[in-house]
Structure formats: structure tokens, C-alpha cells
């Protein structure tokens, strides 16, 4: 009976013809933009951007994007809830500085240092979550304060100097390739995104992210533990910051007082370009990956073209604006549906 009845109900997404294609394009606008970007750059400088001449460039993008990608997906979980985590960079710096100092002073194995870094990041994220969910502090301000405090901690630890960590035991992860072909960093990026895809789409926790971000009051009335969902999102953000900290410190063989600070705005930009709505409740892991790749491609591309770094920043700003416009188009499109 139930088998027969299900066949009568359509399961595919609604919409007809042109409408459906337009919606698909808007939903996946980041990949369209990425393709467009590649074509434009190929015209501007065929020598560098033609994949048949210079495939190496296209291999470098995921490598360049790896640290930022891991940071972004953690942040995006909090945006999905309708909150935001501005302390990602601070958590990344403090957790990796802690790990590196313990590694250097107590001569523990490199892998142990990695575990400590992830633990510190996760703990800091958990504290964020606790303060936001239980004490009802506003995420924007609470994480801003946390970031300021953590940046201060890093300054205090490093005293403005660079701490080098050149032991191969620590740097293999950021500087070598698995089987001599694919960098470990790219592996980590892929691993984290696959895990997050499963969490977001296929677990009760991920579904709760969407529900709380879409309508927190309804989520509560439906029996979802909103506080626990919030704490989980911020904890995951902290954990991702820890992982990104390992990746960056291992790649750079060092920690300094401005560790990772260039990522501050870029990760928010990448999440928004990737289709994560700042209103909460809308976002896709694949889109966020696209956003990260797009932003990195443009930044790398402009540098290859020989543009000054302030142009690169300007371009990043323009892309974010474009993303925001697309976001509002998406909402208008849905309202019509």
C-alpha cells in the first residue's frame, strides 16, 4: 500500500523548463562564476591559464586553497545557524602556537602536537558555543571579543618574534606529497569536506543546523535541542580552526604574531560566494568548496597577471558584492516559487 502510494508523488525539485534552469544556475552560481573566471583569464593570458599549457597552475589552486578551505567550512556551519564565528583566525593561531611550543619544549612526537592543536581549537570553539548558547551572548560580538583576546595571546606567546619549527617530523604534513603526487594538504581538504558533507546532509545534527538557521523557534517546538546545536556548530568551527592551524604552521615551518590574519575576511567572503546565506538556513558544502576555489583562483590569477596586491583586495571586495547580489536574487527567486 505504502509502496504504491509513494509512486504517485513527485520527488524531484519543482519548477518547469526555463525556470528550473535559471534556478539551477543561481543555485550553482559559484561554479558558473569559476568557469567564467577561467575563460576570462585564459583570454587575458593564454600562456599561464590555458590548462593544456600550464596544468600545474590548476594543481596549485587546491593546494593554495587548502588552509582557507578548512577554516571556511567550520565558519560556514555557524553562518548556517544564522550566527557567525569571527574568531576562526584567532583560534587557529592560539591552538597552533600552543602545539608548536609544547612540541619544541617537551620534544613530543609531531603527531602528538597535532592532537594537542586540534584539542585546543576544539576547546576554544566549545567555549564560544557555551557562551553564545547558554549565556545568550550575541555571536558577532562574542567571537569578535574572543578573536581580539586570542590575537593578544598569540602576541604574548611569540612576543612579536617568529618561532620556527623546521623539524621534518612536524613539516612533512604541509610540505610533502602522498605517493609523491598529491600534497597531503589537499588530502586533508578533501577529507574534511567529505566528512562535513555527510554531517550536513545526512545526520540529525546537520539537519538541525538547517532547521535552527531557518527558524530557530520552530526547531525548538519540533523538539530540536537548539542550544546543543549551537554549541556543536561553534565547537566544529574551533576544531576546523585547529586543523587549519596545523596545516598552515606545518606548511610555513613557523608561527608568528600575525599568523593567518590574511584569512580573516576571505573566509567569510568564500562562504558567502559559495551560497551560504547570512540569514541562516541556506548553504551547501559543495558550494562552499566552489567559493573557496573561486576566491583562490582569482587571487592567484591576479597575482600571476602581475597586479598589485591592493588590486587583488579590491577584486575580492567586488566578488563579495557580486555574491551578495546573487544571494538576494536567490531569495527573490524562492519567494516567487
Amino acid at each position: 500500500m505504502s509502496q504504491a502510494s509513494t509512486t504517485n508523488v513527485k520527488i524531484e525539485a519543482p519548477g518547469l523548463g526555463g525556470d528550473r534552469i535559471a534556478r539551477k544556475l543561481i543555485d550553482n552560481s559559484v561554479w558558473v562564476l569559476l568557469a567564467l573566471g577561467i575563460v576570462i583569464f585564459m583570454f587575458l593570458s593564454p600562456k599561464y591559464f590555458n590548462p593544456f599549457n600550464n596544468i600545474q597552475l590548476y594543481f596549485n589552486i587546491p593546494m593554495q586553497a587548502s588552509v582557507m578551505g578548512v577554516l571556511t567550512i567550520g565558519l560556514a556551519g555557524t553562518i548556517l545557524l544564522g550566527d557567525i564565528d569571527l574568531s576562526c583566525v584567532g583560534m587557529m593561531a592560539v591552538s597552533s602556537a600552543t602545539g608548536v611550543l609544547i612540541f619544541k619544549n617537551f620534544h613530543i612526537p609531531g603527531v602528538m602536537a597535532f592532537v594537542i592543536i586540534i584539542a585546543v581549537g576544539t576547546f576554544l570553539g566549545f567555549v564560544n558555543g557555551l557562551l553564545i548558547a547558554k549565556l545568550k551572548t550575541v555571536a558577532l560580538i562574542e567571537t569578535l571579543a574572543m578573536n581580539t583576546a586570542l590575537t593578544g595571546v598569540v602576541l604574548a606567546i611569540t612576543r612579536g618574534r617568529t618561532i620556527t619549527v623546521s623539524e621534518p617530523e612536524y613539516t612533512w604534513l604541509g610540505q610533502s606529497k602522498a605517493f609523491g603526487t598529491v600534497p597531503y594538504l589537499v588530502f586533508i581538504l578533501m577529507f574534511v569536506y567529505i566528512i562535513m558533507y555527510v554531517v550536513w546532509r545526512k545526520t540529525a545534527l546537520g539537519r538541525s543546523f538547517y532547521a535552527v538557521g531557518g527558524n530557530a523557534q520552530c526547531a525548538r517546538v519540533s523538539g530540536i535541542n537548539v542550544d546543543r546545536t549551537r554549541i556543536a556548530a561553534f565547537t566544529i568551527s574551533g576544531m576546523c580552526a585547529g586543523i587549519a592551524g596545523i596545516m598552515l604552521s606545518s606548511k610555513m615551518s613557523s608561527i608568528n604574531s600575525v599568523f593567518g590574519q590574511t584569512y580573516g575576511m576571505d573566509i567569510i567572503a568564500a562562504a558567502v560566494i559559495g551560497g551560504t546565506s547570512l540569514q541562516g538556513g541556506i548553504g551547501k558544502v559543495s558550494g562552499i568548496l566552489g567559493g573557496v576555489l573561486l576566491l583562490n583562483f582569482i587571487q592567484v590569477g591576479l597575482q600571476v597577471l602581475g597586479l598589485d596586491s591592493y588590486f587583488v583586495q579590491m577584486a575580492t571586495g567586488l566578488i563579495i558584492m557580486l555574491a551578495v547580489v546573487i544571494d538576494s536574487l536567490r531569495i527573490r527567486f524562492q519567494a516567487r516559487g
Partner: peptide, 21 residues
Amino acid sequence: HADGIVGIMPIDENIGLSILR
């Protein structure tokens, strides 16, 4: 509107909200 549905979620996901766990 305030307590019953998550408007930006599809119908099936709305229906599943109370039985996730």
C-alpha cells in the same frame, strides 16, 4: 509561521524534523 514550519526547507524535511533522532 513562527513556530510550525521552516519556510526555506522542503516539505519532506519539515515533516522529518521531530523524528530526526
